[in-house]
Structure formats: C-alpha cells, structure tokens
Simulated assay, not measured.
Amino acid sequence: MKWSEISIHTTNEAIEPISNILHEAGASGVVIEDPFELSKERVDRFGEIYQLNPDDYPDEGVIIKAYIPINSFLGETVEEIKDAINNLILFNIDIGKNSVTISEVNEEEWATAWKKYYNPVKISERFTIVPTWEDYTPVSSDELIIELDPGMAFGTGTHPTTVMCVQALERTVKKGDECIDVGTGTGVLSIAAAMLGSSKVTALDLDEVAVHSAILNIKLNKVNDVVSVAQNNLLDGISEQVDIVVANILAEVILRFTDDVAKVVKPGGYFIASGIIGQKKQQVKEAIEQVDFTIQETLVMEDWVAFIARKN
C-alpha cells in the first residue's frame, strides 16, 4: 500500500486543532516537528542523551505530519483538510504560514522510518535498551543489555513509565523471586525481571499483537526458560501468589484491579505500579494503601509517577 504524507507548516497554537482535523480525516496519528525540542533541557540521568538533528526541524513555527492511504478519495480528503484548517481563523486561532505539502510514501519506508530515532539508551544503573538492528558494546562488566524490537506493540522501553519500572525492579527483585508483569507490551519488564534473577516470570497482556511481540523479544534475550507469555485480562483467573506484581498501565486500570493484586502478592511482597499521570497520583496511592500495602517509594519522571508498594 502507498501512503500520502501531508505536511502542514503552522504554529504551536494550532497544533491541537489541526491534529484533531487530521485524526477526523483518517490519520491514525501525527508527527510534530517543533524546534523547541532542540533547546529543551533534559535531565542527563545516566550519561546518554540522543542528539536531535536541527535539519529535521523548521526555523520557526512547527510542522505537523500525518499519513493517509492513497485512494480515489484522497484529493477530496486533502481539500477538506485545507478548508478545515483555514476555518480555524474564524475561531481566532493563528495558523501561521499554513503551507500544506503532499508527498507519496511507500508502506515499507513509512513502517521503518521511525527506526532512525531509536538508538541504544541507558535507562538505569544497570540496564541499556538496544534495538535489534544496532551494534552496541557494553561499557561496564555489570551492564545488562536488553535487545528490543518493538514491532507493532507499544513501547520502545525508553518511556518514563517503563524506565521507572525497570529502576523499581532493580531495587526489589531478589534471586529466586517469582513475578507477574501485567500489560507486558513488548515484554521489556519481564525480561528485566528475569535478568535480575527471578526464577519465574509470567507476562500477561490482553492485546494479541503485544503477546506476539513479547514472545519474540523474550526469545531474542534468551530468557524464555524463565518467562512465559499469555493473553489475559489483567489478573483475571490468576490464583498463584508471587513476590512481585509489576504493572505499567493507565491509572484508571490500576484502580480497577488493586483488590486482585492484594490477593496475588505474598505478604512482604511488592506491587510496582506505573503509568500514572501526576493528577491521579493521590487517588492511586490511596487505592493501593486501602488493600493493605505501604508505599515505600514514589518515583517521579517528567509528568509521570510510579509507586513501589510493599504488602503488610
């Protein structure tokens, strides 16, 4: 299949309304090239920050890109997008240059273009995430390397919520511990738990694509003798007790199954909960404490929060 890349040079003020216009036109997502990212200060926690290329960004304003399949209605769709953007002026929204360009992209190129932005990243004291297509030499003898191919599943292992989970696992996993990874995605947390010495890890996800991706990554990292993957809704039907449950999912979902976590985690065991936006911090904290856990540590990265909670 061939795709049409629609590129719109506009302003920061127009990002949200134009993104919404593109979504309504059939784009499943947008790319925003904002020169502010070049000067944005990032915390250098582990000594490696990927350098952005200024040539990929406009001198002023922002560029919003979206991809729409090429079909017989493409011309009409593009005109509707242009009209909708022009109408934003009626709502006193500054649309800036408002230059719209169209180019053709092959599906194979589109599917792999993102890989140039995904490089080895050291995410904790011991772990480095390395994409499967990159060559990487460890810089220390105790460094743990997780090779990852995200495929079509969520996560490259470098999102703040994942990073905090890995750091939490480093602080809690003891040799021989049994763990459950709820919402495993690419399997990165299960792989980390196995590499830290867990004797048994169960990786669960409701998404069939994520399950397939996790199986591949777990085999790639040679921990399939420790980690098993299953398609499952949260902890439904799970009765065995384990030392650690880790869940990197939305706050709303965490609130739904804290009772199940309390049944599954052994006394003295841990619940690592991440994926929590700052506004939901207190609500999730109270829910975890209500099921007989004590919050031992709160991790914060950017706008995200993670809890390390121990069962009383």
Rank of each mutant, 00 (worst) to 15 (best):
K2C: 13
S4H: 04
S7E: 04
I8W: 08
N12T: 15
I15H: 08
P17D: 08
S19I: 03
L22F: 11
L22W: 07
A27R: 11
V30M: 05
V31T: 14
D34Q: 03
D34W: 01
F36H: 13
K40G: 04
R42G: 07
Y50W: 11
D59I: 14
D59R: 14
K65T: 09
K65N: 11
I68C: 06
I68W: 00
P69S: 05
N71F: 05
E76H: 10
K82H: 07
A84D: 14
L90H: 12
F91W: 15
D94F: 08
T101Y: 07
I102L: 15
S103W: 04
E107M: 01
E109M: 03
E109R: 00
A113R: 07
W114R: 00
W114T: 00
K115N: 06
K122P: 01
S124I: 00
R126F: 12
T128W: 02
I129E: 03
I129L: 04
V130L: 04
V130R: 08
T132G: 12
E134L: 10
E134G: 10
E134A: 10
Y136W: 06
T137W: 08
S140Q: 09
I146H: 00
E147D: 11
G151Q: 05
M152E: 10
G155N: 02
H159A: 00
T161K: 00
V163G: 01
V163M: 07
V166G: 07
L169Q: 11
R171D: 15
K174P: 03
K175E: 15
K175G: 14
G176A: 08
G176S: 06
E178F: 14
C179K: 09
C179G: 13
C179P: 06
D181E: 11
V182F: 03
G187W: 03
A193D: 01
A193F: 03
K200A: 13
V201L: 05
A203N: 08
L204R: 01
D205W: 04
L206K: 14
E208W: 09
E208P: 08
V211H: 06
A214L: 05
K219W: 11
D225R: 15
V226T: 13
V227W: 03
S228M: 13
I238E: 08
V242E: 09
V245Y: 02
V245I: 14
A247Q: 09
N248V: 05
A251F: 05
E252T: 15
R256P: 09
D260N: 11
V264P: 02
V264L: 06
V264Y: 02
V265F: 03
V265T: 02
V265Q: 01
K266H: 07
P267C: 05
F271E: 00
A273T: 04
G275H: 06
G275A: 02
I277T: 14
I277Q: 10
G278Y: 13
G278H: 14
Q279H: 12
K281Y: 09
K285Y: 14
Q290A: 10
T294R: 12
Q296E: 15
E297R: 15
E297Y: 13
T298M: 04
L299Q: 01
E302A: 03
I308W: 00
A309Q: 00
R310I: 06
N312E: 12
